[in-house]
Amino acid sequence: MKSCLIVDDSRVVRKVAGRIISDLKFEVREAGDGTEALDACRQQMPDAILLDWSMPVMNGLDFIRALRREENGRKPIIVFCSTENDAEHIGEAMRSGANEFIMKPFDADIIESKFAEVGLI
């Protein structure tokens, strides 16, 4: 079973996304910000990461840059998931090492479509 780490400071978003991604047959873990996510990755590197942009302590962009420097840190497929939906922000996320981008709000169909796009399902 593939694993997915959901990183978002909103518990509601984590629950909603977690349910959708579990239905796609992923083992789901959660983190509330970038540092928690980095700890989770050091314990066990996930196959996929659904990553929010603005979070306290460490935001999504800083997390990607830090993760990509870690051992095996290039392995996870990172799908950014953010309300920063203009072309510049999306471009910046992609240049920082994200593999796909979901604009919030999302539904199950969008997550499935984007996961398929990057070959996770």
């Binding site: 979901i102 709000p105 999302f106 479509s113 984007k114």
Partner: peptide, 20 residues
Amino acid sequence: GHFEIQKGLSVRRMLTHFTR
């Protein structure tokens, strides 16, 4: 719209071929 543009389309193609 926001939902249509995210179904079946990669973000790379969205940025290449569409303007917000």
